[in-house]
Nucleic acid binder design. Structure first.
Length: 808
RNA sequence: GCGGAUGUGGCGAAAUUGGCAGACGCGCUAGACUUAGGAUCUAGUGUCUUCGACAUGGGAGUUCGAGUCUCUUCAUCCGCACCA
């Protein structure tokens, strides 16, 4: 079979007939299948692209044949660092390399034979798209969800750019692995923390992998407790956050983060030198060493004291870098008896340790005792359990104006400014008189200029482009300057799924009337590496836009599937540095898209992935050939029209195959679905290995086989269908439906165990009762022989499964 | 340290959710047809020395029955990492 000819023939037909165009008339029956769009960093599709897009396209085709109106768009996440880094290295402009890569990838994706509707294509680096990214920025800004603040940020010394917390891995830059240091810059933030609680709660509604939900949950990091106020000798006040207010009577010191605003004021003359030296030391080592939990608990005494609000006791104020300025209040109470870290700290610095919690049941409770228990040495709260006291103590302080119940989240606001060229410009200008002013919506897009020197030198490249930077204030008309930064590319990808169904709208980002019908995405497919970034940001955008009145749904992705990762043949992640990257190109050349796609679906568990191994691909070609012979045979098959036991048997396999394959496809279990189809083919071969066969029945069986295979090998199936006389695309036909009547058998085989060991097989009528099955089993000669003189104590009959005879 | 997973033949993997372990395929071994075979077809293929026994990382347990549930332990992978 000439697969190259077949593949190009059908690809052309599909395109000419616009077979995969979404039909808006059927919008009520829509099914939105979305694969995470590609990042055009390389010129070619790699094995991972094929693994993501091939099987999920088969899934879309399957759903189409299940009667759904499929919307399956494709686009490109085209802004970003790699294109810019590539440009710095080669001198090729990011826009040129990106657009060129996109053109190649488009061609390749078409050659894959994926049923994308290209009419809705998106490229995030084009003004007709990023105009609306900017528009969304302005809506968030107007709603108070975008704001600027000076904050310590992660600064990659090599990329010369700011990184989000999520992009810092082990204190190093996610992309280049260089050391990340702290630097203060004024940056734009999105207030994702406003949605922390809802982002957490709504996870329960989602049909997502549990692991991904757990990761988001942890990332959001809700913890409930209370804030407690301390008054210093100087009269200054500060609050600490605690989840264990029940241990308050055990406070023997407090610690402020080195960056805490009160530190300077509270430091006494005697301690000034030590405190300054310590702060300097922290600024140097921060974030790099802080990643180790086993690190020694360092700190310095400020010289000042404050009063424990629960008992008035005077306790020293320290600073220590184990306290994070960015979480809670940037200050903690020290209870060495009941917290591991405080215990270490107190031991090291010779601070008192006072027990205020005992175990509930008198079990061993050596210090530090961090479990829940019962209060002691706690005045009126003695005898209360941790659960009671942690609320009661805060409530009491609340009455005195010295505390409040409080919930904290680890989630931080999303830093979106990037000191980079190749990204979406920020639509804000700065005016000497009016300050920070949003660009008028009518003036969008703020176009990214082409001629820019983007060599990294610590400043934003756009800053050096005077004709870009200089503008007029939208409010007062005086000369003003633009924001020189661009947005994190995750901003572009946080709403692209909303743009797709209305991709060419030049009046709005999207028409709510359309989007509210087309969304949420019914099946979203992509890598697990996005669990805490893209997938969280997209949820945030959806909720924010809903609250701004543009959407009427709460969640963007109803159901999510992560495909596994294809590793190198050595079992490691494919990487250029390791030299284990497999290029699929040779395979495609040699075997074609269909065989390659089918191989990817059959050789791996889709959700698991695994090491690359090419050995099975020949067998797929053989299998397709095997099917082809069956298809060709339909043209000259001779036979009768009897429908006897052999036909009945094959019909059983046929229908159970349909049933199983349908079930497996729905849960992305492609490898088992294909295994079932192979079994069916084996059964057909067994059937035709006879003198006489039922010709009409045979043709029906083969027709079903072709339909079953259509999502898996789309081009070949079209060809087979044509050979069999089909005049329209096989994808306009319905997937075969299981005829339940065919699954009814007169009798079936059943295993008989004696003391859980299989001793015989019996055949029983399908409608036999448990008692009848038991009688048949006990009267079976093999069973009798195996039982010998033993007494039957008990017989367990599980119809359709087995019989177990307990005997002695 | 915390959270989540995974561990089954020579290999990729299945197992209707507590019911015949190893489906399907690769590989391998025979054989048939062939001038030829990297084509096709047939048979075999978890391990052990046979009747039979033993087998799902190791060890316990619950059960008539455990790959599946419980406890414990080891190994590997992923995510988070002083979050008060």
């Amino acid at each position: 079979m000439d697969f190259k000819k077949i593949e190009s023939k059908w690809q052309k037909k599909w395109e000419d007939e616009k077979l995969y165009s979404f039909n808006k008339k059927n919008i009520d029956n829509k099914y939105y299948v979305l694969e995470m769009f590609s990042y055009p960093s390389g010129a070619k599709l790699h094995a991972g692209h094929w693994y993501n897009y091939g099987p999920s396209d088969s899934y879309a085709r399957f759903m189409r044949m299940q009667g759904k109106e499929i919307f399956q768009p494709m686009g490109f996440d085209a802004f970003g660092l790699p294109a810019e880094n590539y440009a710095i290295k080669t001198g090729i402009h990011p826009q040129d390399s990106t657009l060129k890569n996109i053109a190649t990838m488009e061609k390749q994706l078409k050659a894959m034979g994926a049923s994308f509707d290209w009419d809705y294509e998106i490229k995030t680096c084009m003004p007709d798209y990023y105009k609306w990214t900017q528009w969304i920025f302005l809506q968030l800004y107007k709603a108070g969800l975008a704001y600027r603040k000076k904050a310590p940020v992660n600064w990659c010394t090599s990329c010369k750019t700011v990184l989000a917390n999520e992009q810092v891995i082990d204190g190093k830059c996610e992309r280049c692995g260089s050391q990340v240091i702290q630097k203060d810059l004024t940056q734009w933030f999105f207030k994702i923390t406003n949605y922390a609680e809802e982002l957490l709660q709504d996870l329960d509604k989602l049909d997502w992998p549990e692991k991904t939900k757990a990761m988001q949950k942890h990332w959001i990091g809700k913890s409930t407790g209370g804030e407690i106020e301390f008054e210093c000798e100087s009269g200054d006040k500060f609050r600490v956050f605690t989840t264990r207010a029940d241990t308050s009577f055990g406070i023997t010191y407090v610690v402020l983060a080195p960056e805490h605003p009160l530190v300077d004021k509270l430091t006494t003359k005697e301690q000034r030198a030590a405190v300054e030296a310590y702060k300097e030391e922290c600024a140097k080592t921060k974030e790099i060493d802080r990643l180790s939990t086993t690190r020694e608990k360092t700190g310095v005494f400020t010289g000042s004291y404050c009063f424990n609000p629960v008992n008035g006791k005077k306790v020293p104020i320290w600073i220590g870098d184990y306290v994070l300025a960015s979480y809670g209040t940037g200050a903690v109470m020290g209870v060495p008896a009941h917290d591991d870290r405080d215990y270490d700290f107190a031991k090291k610095h010779g601070i008192d340790i006072i027990r205020v919690i005992k175990s509930k049941d008198g079990s061993p409770d050596d210090l530090p005792y961090c479990e829940y228990g019962v209060c002691c040495n706690s005045g009126e709260f003695d005898g209360m359990t941790t659960e009671e006291a942690k609320v009661a103590i805060v409530k009491k302080l609340e009455k005195e104006g010295k505390g409040a119940l409080k919930t904290n989240y680890r989630l931080r606001d999303w830093l979106v400014s990037r000191q980079r060229y190749w990204g979406c410009p920020i639509p804000i200008v700065y005016c000497d008189d009016c300050g920070e002013v949003p660009v008028n919506e009518a003036d969008l897009p703020v176009k990214l200029p082409y001629n820019v020197d983007f060599t990294p030198d610590g400043a934003s490249p756009l800053l050096k482009c005077e004709e870009y930077m200089n503008t007029v204030c939208p409010k007062c008309g005086k000369p003003a300057r633009r924001d020189p930064d661009t947005m994190d590319t995750f901003v572009c990808s946080s709403w692209y799924f909303l743009r797709y169904p209305d991709a060419h709208n030049d009046k709005m980002a999207f028409d709510p009337a359309i989007i509210n019908k087309m969304l949420p995405v019914d099946k979203y497919i992509g890598g697990a590496e996005h669990a805490c970034m893209h997938l969280l940001y997209a949820r945030f955008f959806t909720k924010a836009l809903r609250d701004l009145g543009y959407l009427n749904f709460d969640e963007p992705f109803k159901s999510l599937v992560h495909q596994g990762t294809i590793l190198g043949p050595d079992g490691f992640k494919m990487s250029k540095s390791r030299g284990n990257v497999v290029s699929p190109d040779d395979c495609i050349q040699k075997y074609g898209s269909d065989a390659f796609r089918m191989y990817l679906m059959f050789g791996f568990s889709y959700i698991e992935g695994g090491p690359w191994n090419e050995s099975g691909i020949d067998s797929i070609v053989k299998f397709i050939d095997r099917v082809e012979r069956l298809v060709v045979k339909t043209k000259d098959v001779q036979g009768n029209d009897t429908f006897a036991s052999r036909e009945k048997e094959l019909n059983f396999v046929r229908n159970s195959t349909i049933k199983r394959v349908t079930e497996d496809f729905k849960i992305f279990s492609f490898n088992t679905a294909i295994a079932r189809i192979m079994e069916y083919v084996n059964a057909i071969y067994k059937y035709i290995d006879a003198e006489e066969i039922n010709a009409k029945f045979y043709k029906d069986c083969i027709k079903d086989l072709v339909l079953l295979l259509a999502p898996v090998i789309p081009h070949t199936a079209e060809e087979f269908n044509e050979i069999m006389g089909g005049t329209t695309s096989v994808f306009n036909e319905a997937y075969p439906k299981c005829d339940e009547k065919a699954l009814v058998k007169d009798e079936y085989e059943l295993a008989v165990q004696i003391n859980s060991k299989i001793k015989a097989k019996i055949v029983v009528p399908s409608n036999a009762s448990q008692q009848e099955i038991q009688d048949i089993a006990l009267n079976d000669s093999q069973v009798k022989a195996a039982l010998g003189a033993q007494n039957v104590l008990k017989v367990i009959v599980i119809p359709k499964r087995l019989v177990n005879i307990v005997a002695k």
